[in-house]
Amino acid sequence: MKFALMVSEGPYTHQSSDTAWQFAKAALESGHEIFRVFFYHDGVNNGTRFTAPPQDDRHIVNRWSELAEEYGLDLVVCVAAAQRRGIIDADEAKRHGKDGDNIAPGFRISGLGQLIEAGIEADRLLQFGD
């Protein structure tokens, strides 16, 4: 089965990104394909490498990055949602005159078309959020 995932909520505030990560990991380990994980609304906050949770808690952002590294998972942060919330890569930082970037390894910033394409290409698009 070819899945696509949409994560609609931010990390830690909401469990949906944990659930999405657990689903992605289980699906990949079972030999399924994940076409893309698309982060929207506050879900874009899953993609900042400046996240520094207490050591006895899970590191949600690093977990996504590690999954991307291991499986070549495509993690896409919506550009419009990201701009509103201060999630930014080097190119965007330059374009907007910001003094740094914070996108985490394995994530990339792109447009909403990537979500629609995921809906078209995948057998199932699953949304994780309220």
Partner: peptide, 19 residues
């Protein structure tokens, strides 16, 4: 909440894909 306005953005952008 932001869901409605960002949802409308998806509908408008998605329209370009001729689905």
């Amino acid at each position: 909440t932001v869901y409605s306005v960002e949802g409308l953005e998806v509908a408008l952008i998605g329209a370009a894909f001729e689905q």
